[in-house]
């Protein structure tokens, strides 16, 4: 089994708190990039990066157009732009129409993450009050990526996790406080297994 190469996360209503909890569980030397779409008001600025950065050890920043993706960095989609991943593992932005009423859209990030990382993806869906992300989850699952969904019972808004669970056979459904530790375990295990086989 190849080790994972990127983590993509989608969250909406209630997401800031949920993201803080997930990221707080990860060490500074976390070996993968983490790329996040959190739905925000179109005119909000970069405050989310400051909030999340203050809650965890990782470097959190808004993704820039054409920026090369690095491991151990948390990237956030800028408000009012879709965030896409290119095959050379850099970012593109677009102002295409909102997808499932959202810009940035989780589906757009997840679908294009497949172009760059194929099956070496871990996708996480957290709290949210719409169904953005469910199509992306379905496609990542189809190709063989790993899907974690926040237990709808622990989500501030349960529509988004429920839609993801309905759209595909997800790998893990976990309460929010277990997602960060489990992600770390999953990534470390995959790296160990990979080293044993090579």
């Amino acid at each position: 089994m190849n080790p994972f190469e990127a983590v993509v996360i989608g969250s909406s209503a209630g997401g800031i708190k949920a993201l803080s909890m997930v990221l707080a569980a990860l060490p500074r030397e976390f070996p993968l990039p983490i790329i996040i779409v959190q739905h925000l008001h179109p005119h909000s600025d970069s405050y989310l990066a400051h909030i999340l950065g203050s809650k965890c050890e990782l470097n959190v920043k808004q993704a820039d157009e054409k920026e090369t993706i690095n491991k151990g960095v948390v990237y956030l989609a800028p408000p009012n732009y879709h965030l896409l991943i290119e095959e050379d593992r850099s970012f593109s932005l677009s102002i295409d129409k909102p997808v499932t009423y959202a810009r940035p859209s989780v589906d757009v990030l997840f679908e294009t993450a497949i172009y760059a990382y194929q099956d070496k993806l871990i996708a996480i869906i957290l709290t949210g009050a719409n169904n953005d992300g469910s199509q992306g989850v379905k496609k990542i699952k189809q190709i063989g990526g790993y899907i974690i969904v926040q237990d709808p019972a622990t989500a501030e808004a349960d529509a988004m996790p429920k839609a993801a669970i309905a759209a595909s056979k997800v790998d893990s459904i976990l309460p929010i406080e277990q997602i960060g530790p489990y992600l770390l375990h999953l990534v470390n295990r995959s790296i160990r297994l990979y080293r044993q086989c090579h």
Binding site: L84, E86, S94
Partner: peptide, 8 residues
């Protein structure tokens, strides 16, 4: 053009 967008 940026590929990801075109491909999508």
């Amino acid at each position: 053009y940026s590929k990801a967008s075109i491909k999508r």
